[in-house]
Nucleic acid binder design. Structure first.
Length: 892
RNA sequence: GGGAGCUUAGCUCAGCUGGUUUAGAGCAUCUGCCUUACAAGCAGAGGGUCAUAGGUUCGAAUCCUAUAGCUCCCACCA
């Protein structure tokens, strides 16, 4: 049957993925083999595949497939994350489209909608991962809100509470006015913003003229009527309704006259005290700071210290509240504009300056966060940070690249308590139950809570309906941090066999932007509950950018659709494209051209297969000496490459490993070996050569399989007769045996020789069909060498010569000189120029070597082998120069 | 404001504890080729004072110092 000249991935991919599933090759059960376990960074349950996932999961699949082929019991556990805030936002939007407000329905109704949404859109991303070829154990698919994971979360919460690590309290937190929930510090992203610094007039209250001492350095502002005022610089004039003090630095000479005074908040006309605190930076602005304890973290701190009143001028959605007394109901942004205009009109705006500052935005909803005082649950981090630092610093967990160790340490050293409560419904509801008479109990179930409540209050009449469970849910990461533990049910049943077998897992592949959110916290949980790391190695991928280095984003429209790419280039092509553009740890500048390269490589493999498959085997032909020589060489070459690939993969240098495999197949196997063993057109091939070639092909496919699972399976299946149930993915990866450098070096010479003759053909415009003759000097080619050269360069003969050959084109390889007699075709002038150039180069080279050798410091200090090497360079250069000079003389 | 990292060919990057013929790869470019597996291909070629300035050393892309530029992370100066 005719095989197409082009590889068509689609049917091949579907066929083999189904086969793998059917054969249960992805599934893993504990057995006597060494386990190799990876847990997927769970994507958002309702998310769709983007380029970041493609990169991340391709790398995981490469590692997992390789481990499996090394005979390990490989287990890659997939799953999804309930993504509390993101999913809730999506459900709220969807309801809004139906005219339903979240506030109009009950929690139960809302959760029903959310589950419907999850079931409808959930898991799409996992299906997409199958298209990519991911060899996950799908039977183990987990969800951060399924029963086991939920119970694990609740049990952990209760345990930490009982250990005194979880507490509840009123704190200044990051408030997301869009999602209407508190956020952790990690969920706030600071962005540079070009804004303005507004200088406002705060008039002295009941100015009786006292205090103006006229001390040196004092700066007293007075208006046209002689009224004195202080000037306060602020970026947020809309918060003046919440001002409850003005603060100066007691050591600030400029503002001594304000000590003990009261000032009037502009527009608001409320008198506030001037307080003193060294916190205020004398150099900044005017040295006068307005204090709004309800809306700024620092002001809150000042407010606590100086026992100031706190006025919350914002509603939860960041519109102005009744408490502000003015502008009620307006948004933050509107008020800013309005109040600036009003201040200006009232003559209370001294001046405005351009100013760059950082504004915190919600990572999820992208709206500016508002510091807000509220009652929240917190997890104490001091102890957890301590236990999480050690394994990374000690190298029990290795980071790739290692620069992240510093980052990790720095974060843990400066860690603050983790705000774990969210004012959302979609998530794990906090297992705290409030008692009718105040206070609360924390328990895994309502029944246990009731029991505790009765014990605590002594009131035996209490019933379940008297208890009110906390409305809040837990931060999504409070479930993710248990992932490696909870996937094998290690939280609820830490002694179960699976958990004991698979935990700790081996490699974690993740993006660096969640090192704190996730990686650090998993280490904490692992150490706290198992006194054991959750994984041994963490590989941080880069961020996927476009080829111009811009982040991929919806608004830029520069992010390709992964499934569309797979459709156009095949899964293997896309995998290769992604891996090639992904140096370890660096950002990935994705260029579709590399995906094209991947597709082209698939085609290359495909066609190599077509060639080999077309050969008719014959037992009656003797193995040609060229084939024998070529096959022997390739064996060494292959072994060296295997060693290289293994080394690269062991160091997580995945793109290098792929590049080595790529070059091995294309350059060494296809361009050299296949050309050497290829029989003449229509002629059969000797059985021995064919068998050995097939064996090499098979090994190459195995090496490539982790990177390109589909095409390698397809060809592996066709290469030889296979039994049902066999697969390359469960075959053994070839291991490296020793290779002989001598053989490899000799072959490199051969390559140069062949290339040199090809170049001469090109220069002289000689058809490859014309046979040439080569004479070699200072080279002792063996029969195999000669046979291969004759075949690939189409030589009638290769003879050794002790001297100069006239009327020949020539080139040099090392000290050897090769002549191709071309009577009448030699352009003497051109030849002379070329030789002269080579000679100049060689002389310059010799000079540099001689300079080195002439330096007594060098010969005395450098190690013997280095000096020896220089002497060899010298000798070689001299030989070469002698040859060139001789040759030039001949041409004269 | 603090910390980390980067700067090598047009682009993206290797170059490990300083010495392997005066720096390598892939892509891109250029030149030949529709040569009987592959034009999604083959055979070749060009292209770099290793950011800059000093220093250490017999010897520096590699180690040290400074400068410039870029990137990332952290941080409560309004």
């Amino acid at each position: 049957m005719e095989i197409s000249a082009q590889y068509s991935p689609r049917q091949v991919e579907d066929k083999w993925y189904a086969y793998w599933l059917d054969q249960g090759f992805f599934s893993s059960k504990p057995d006597g083999r060494e386990p190799y376990c990876v847990v997927i960074p769970p994507p958002n349950v309702t998310g769709v595949l983007h380029m970041g996932h493609m990169l991340n999961n391709t790398i995981q699949d490469v590692l997992v497939r390789r481990a499996r082929m090394q005979g390990k019991n490989a287990c890659w556990v997939p799953g999804t994350d309930h993504a509390s805030i993101a999913t809730e936002a999506k459900v709220v939007n969807k309801l809004a489209q139906q005219g339903i407000k979240k506030t109009d329905i009950s929690r139960e109704e809302f959760l029903k909608h959310a589950w419907d949404w999850t079931h409808e859109h959930g898991g799409i991303i996992l299906k997409q991962l199958r298209r990519l070829g991911c060899s996950c154990d799908w039977d183990r698919t987990a969800f951060t809100m399924d029963e086991t994971r939920s119970k694990s979360v609740i049990r952990t919460f209760v345990d930490l509470y009982n250990k005194g690590l979880i507490y509840r309290g009123v704190r200044m937190v990051n408030w997301d006015p869009q999602a209407l929930t508190a956020l952790s510090d990690e969920e706030v992203i600071f962005r540079d913003e070009h804004s303005k610094l507004y200088y406002l007039r705060y008039y002295l209250h009941n100015d009786d003229g006292s205090g103006a001492t006229g001390t040196e350095g004092e700066i007293i502002h007075t208006d046209a009527q002689g009224r004195r005022y202080a000037v306060v610089a602020t970026t947020r004039p809309e918060t003046i309704m919440g001002d409850t003090a003005m603060c100066i630095n007691p050591t600030d000479p400029k503002n001594q006259w304000l000590r003990g005074k009261q000032v009037v908040v502009p527009l608001v006309n409320r008198a506030i005290p001037v307080i003193e605190d060294t916190y205020v930076d004398i150099e900044f602005g005017t040295g006068c700071l307005k204090v709004t304890p309800a809306h700024d973290v620092n002001d809150y701190m000042l407010g606590e210290k100086h026992k100031l009143q706190s006025i919350n001028i914002f509603n939860d959605d960041a519109t102005i509240s009744e408490a502000a007394g003015m502008y009620v109901g307006m948004s933050r942004e509107e008020v800013r504009k309005q109040i600036v205009a009003d201040l200006e009109k009232a003559g209370l705006l001294e001046k405005t300056e351009d100013y760059n500052n950082k504004v915190g935005y919600s990572e999820r909803t992208h709206v500016p966060i508002e510091p807000k005082l509220s009652m929240q649950w917190f997890l104490k981090m001091e102890h957890l940070a301590e236990i999480a630092l050690k394994p990374v610093v000690d190298g029990e967990i290795k980071f790739y690249p290692p620069k992240y160790i510093n980052l990790y340490r720095h974060w843990l050293d400066n860690i603050k308590d983790w705000c774990i409560s969210r004012q959302l419904w979609w998530g794990h509801q906090i297992p705290a139950y409030y008692l009718p008479e105040g206070g609360f109990v924390v328990a895994e179930t309502p029944e246990e809570a009731l029991q505790q409540a009765i014990e605590k209050t002594g009131n035996k009449q209490l019933t379940l309906s008297d208890l009110r469970q906390d409305d809040d849910v837990l931060d999504t990461w409070f479930s993710s941090w248990l992932w490696p533990l909870s996937l094998f049910n290690g939280v609820l049943d830490p002694n179960n066999a699976e958990f004991k077998y698979y935990y700790p897992t081996n490699d974690l592949i993740t993006a660096p932007d969640i090192i704190f959110f996730w990686v650090a916290r998993m280490i904490m949980a692992g150490e706290e509950y198992q006194h054991q790391v959750p994984f041994r190695n963490v590989y941080f991928t880069g961020i996927v950018r476009d080829k111009l280095g811009r982040k991929m984003s919806k608004s830029l429209g520069n992010s390709p659709d992964p499934l569309d790419l797979i459709e156009r280039y095949g899964a293997d092509g896309v995998r290769m494209g992604i891996l090639l553009s992904s140096p370890a740890g660096g950002d990935l500048l994705f260029d579709e051209a590399l995906t094209e390269q991947g597709r082209n490589f698939c085609n290359k493999i495909w066609n190599a297969f077509r060639l080999v498959k077309s050969w008719q085997s014959s037992n009656s032909i003797e193995q040609p000496i060229a084939a024998q020589y070529g096959l022997e060489w390739f064996g060494h070459r292959l072994n060296r490459a295997i060693a290289q690939i293994n080394d690269d993969l062991d160091k997580y240098r995945i793109s290098e490993a792929l590049m080595t495999s790529f070059k091995l197949f294309r350059d060494e196997f296809s361009a050299w070996l296949l050309e050497i063993v290829k029989p003449a057109y229509g002629q059969p091939i000797d059985a021995k050569t064919l068998e050995q070639t097939l064996a090499y092909f098979e090994q190459l496919l195995a090496l490539l399989h982790p990177f390109m699972p589909f095409i390698t399976e397809e060809l592996w299946q066709q290469l030889r007769t296979r039994q049902q149930g066999e697969s390359i993915m469960v075959s053994l990866m070839p291991s490296a045996s020793a290779h002989n450098e001598q053989t490899l070096n000799e072959f490199e010479l051969l390559k140069e020789l062949v290339a040199g003759i090809r170049t001469i053909r090109q220069e002289k415009n000689l058809s490859p069909k014309n046979q040439l003759c080569a004479k070699v000097r200072d080279l002792q080619p063996n029969n195999g060498f000669i046979a291969v050269a004759a075949k690939l360069a189409n030589l009638s003969a290769m003879e050794t010569t002790a001297q100069e050959v006239q009327g020949a084109a020539s080139f040099r390889i090392g000290t050897a000189e090769i002549y191709v007699p071309l009577e009448g075709l030699i352009d003497t002038e051109q030849e002379r120029t070329k030789l002269q150039q080579e000679l100049d180069y060689a002389r310059r080279f010799l000079d540099s070597v001689l300079k080195k050798l002439g330096n007594a410091n060098f010969t005395n200090h450098a190690p013997a082998h280095v000096v020896e090497l220089e002497r060899k360079k010298e000798a070689d250069a001299r030989t070469k120069i002698a040859h060139l000079e001789e040759r030039l003389k001949q041409l004269e």
